[in-house]
Design a protein around this nucleic acid. Sequence first.
DNA 1: CAATATATTGGGAACGTTCCCAAAATCAAT
DNA 2: ATTGATTTTGGGAACGTTCCCAATATATTG
Lengths: 342, 342
Amino acid sequence: MSARQDPPSRPTIIHVARAAGVSKSTVSRVLQGDTASVKPETRQAVARAIRKLGYEQNAIASSLRTARTHTVMLIAPDIANPFWSEVTRGLQDTMEHSGYSVVVGNGDWDPHRESQFLKTAQRNRFDGIAINPTIIHCRELRATGIPTVILGIRDGFPQIDMAGSDTYRGTLDALAYLYKMGHRRIGFIYGRYNTDPGYARFQAYADFVKRNHLRADSSLIVEVPFDRAGGERGMQTLLSLSKPPTAVFASNDILAIAAMQRAAQLGVKVPGDVSIVGMDDIYPAAMTTPPLTTMAKQKYEVGCQAAQFLIERIAGKAPREGRRCVLPCRLVERGSCAPSRG
Amino acid sequence: MSARQDPPSRPTIIHVARAAGVSKSTVSRVLQGDTASVKPETRQAVARAIRKLGYEQNAIASSLRTARTHTVMLIAPDIANPFWSEVTRGLQDTMEHSGYSVVVGNGDWDPHRESQFLKTAQRNRFDGIAINPTIIHCRELRATGIPTVILGIRDGFPQIDMAGSDTYRGTLDALAYLYKMGHRRIGFIYGRYNTDPGYARFQAYADFVKRNHLRADSSLIVEVPFDRAGGERGMQTLLSLSKPPTAVFASNDILAIAAMQRAAQLGVKVPGDVSIVGMDDIYPAAMTTPPLTTMAKQKYEVGCQAAQFLIERIAGKAPREGRRCVLPCRLVERGSCAPSRG
DNA sequence: CAATATATTGGGAACGTTCCCAAAATCAAT
DNA sequence: ATTGATTTTGGGAACGTTCCCAATATATTG
C-alpha cells in the first residue's frame, strides 16, 4: 500500500562495536562503566562511536538478560488526593535518585484495579512495589515474589517493610488538644476504609473517650466514605443532633474541609460554634477560611523513607524481617479551633 | 556465605508447553489469543497448564521480540500542582483502558531533568510520550523517533499532535468579564515560562488593552515565577502602586490564590477593594475565602484527548500532519469579583 | 630471552518471547 | 485409496543485551 519508509532502526551494540573496531563484549563493558577492565584508548574509541551513531542502550534487552528493570510500581488508592501526590513525590524523587523509574497505579478504591496492577508489576518484572493496600492481603503481596514496601502502618503484614505515620498517637494528640480547650462533646467523622488505617483513628478515639471518662455516645461517631461528599454528610449529621458536639475531629483534611464548608452553609460558625481538627495537612488546608487546624503528617518524608526501604530490599541488603518506620504527626494550629464556651 | 535459597525462578512458556504436552509456539499462540489457529481442546489444555503453574507472561521478553512495550511516558513540569494531577488522571485512565501503563516524570521546571526523561523513554523503548515541553524543542522530540503528543497548545511543533486549552480566548474572556464589571485598571500577574504558554496570556492581555483603548500601563504587568511565592510577590507589587489596579488577572490559580492571601494579609478586601480572577480551576480554588472566580480548563478531558491522539499515533492510524484539539475555557463565577466602585 | 603472571579482548551461549516456514494431521472430493 | 486443500502444530532463528570462559596481548620476573 502506502510506501511506508522503514523506520531507521536504531543502532545496536553491534553497530557500535563495528564502528569502533572492537567486539560487542568490549562495548558492553564500556556501557556498564567497567572502567577496570578496558584500556582507556579503546574506551575512548567506543565512546566516540557511541556518540557518532547516536546509540542509546536498549534497556529491554538488558533487562531480559539481567532480570532487573530499574522500575518500581506505586499503587495508591487515590492520586487526586494531594496527600498521595506528596507521598508520591517523595518516593519518586528518592527512587529516581537511585536510577529507578516509578510507574504509578491509581487504585481508585477499586479492589479489582489493585490486583490488576499487581499483575502488571509481575508481568513487567518490576523490581519493586510500593503499595497502600486497601483490599490486597499479605499472601497475595508475597506471592508476587517482588520486594515490597507498604505505605502506611498496618497489622497483618509481618514480613514486609512499612513506612507511615503514627496515626494512633496523632489522633490521640488532636483529641487531647480539643480537650484542653475545654471541649467534652467531640464528634468524630470517621472515614471508612475496608482495612485498618481508619481503624487506628477509631481505636484512638475509643481509647481517648475511655481514658478521660467521657460519656461514650455513639451518635458522635459518623462513618462516611473518604471523600468530599462524605465530609459534608458527616458534618450535617453531627450538627443536626439534638445536642451537637462543640468540636469535631475528621479522619483527614478532605473530610475536614468539606465539613467546614457544610457548617458554613448551615450558618454554623467555625470556630465560634464548632471547632474542627483535620489530619494530613494537605496543600489546600492552609487556604480555607478559617484556615484549617490539622494534625500534619510527613507525607514527602514517608515517601522518601519507603523508597529507601525498597531500594535496600531490592539490593538484598535488608534483614529478613519487616522493618517499620513510623513518623510522628505534628499539630499545625491555624484558625479552625477555639476554646469551648460551655 | 549465607545459604541464599535460589529464588524459585518463574515458569516460562516452555514449562507450560511441557506441562500441556505441546510446543512453545502453540502456547504462545494461546497467550496471544490467536483463537483462529489453535484447536479448542489444546487451547483448554494450555489454559489448564498455565493456571496450574501460575504462569505469568514475561513482558520484557515479549517486548524485546515485538519492539512494543505498552508503556508511555508522561513528562509534566510540576506534578504537585493539582492542575497536572488532573491532566495526568485523564491521560492515565484512557491509556490504561487501552492496555498501556504510564510512567510519570516530574520535570520540576528543570530542563536537564526533562531531557533526562526523554532519554529514559528512549532507552526503555516506550511506545509513546506525552509532554508539556518547557525547554525541549521540536527537533529533540522528533529525534527520539517515538510517537508524541503535546499537552497544551504551542507554536513551533508543526508535525506533532497537541491537546490543550484555548488559553488565549480564555484570558480574553476573563478580562472582558472584569471589563464588563466596570474595571478599567486591570493588573496582570504574569507567570513566567521559558516558552509560549505563558505567552498566550500575555498576548491576550496586550490585545485586550489595545482593543478596548485602555491606557497601556506596563506597571500593571508583573512577571513572577509560577509558584506561591510568585503570586504573593506579584500582588504585593501591584498593591503598592501609587494607583493600584481595581482588578487582577492571574496566570493560574496557584498564583491567584496566593495573591488573594497576600491581599488579605495587607488588609485589602477581596473583592471589595480588588477583584481577582484566576485560571485553571484547581481543586483548592473552591475553598478559599472568598471562593475564587476562575477561568476553568478541562483538565481531565485534555488528558483523555491527548491519550486518544497518542494511542492512534502509536497504532499508525494518524495522519502525517499534527492534529490539535483545543478545548474551550469556561468562566466559573464564585466570590472573588465585584463591580468596580470607580 | 624464556617463562610466568596479568591486563585486555573476543566468541558464543543464554535470557523468554514471537514469528516465519515447513511438517504433520485432518478433511473433502474424486 | 489418492490427491489436494486446509487446519493445526512444531522447529528454529531472531530480538539486543550480559556474562562466562577462553584467547590473545602486554608486563614482570628470573
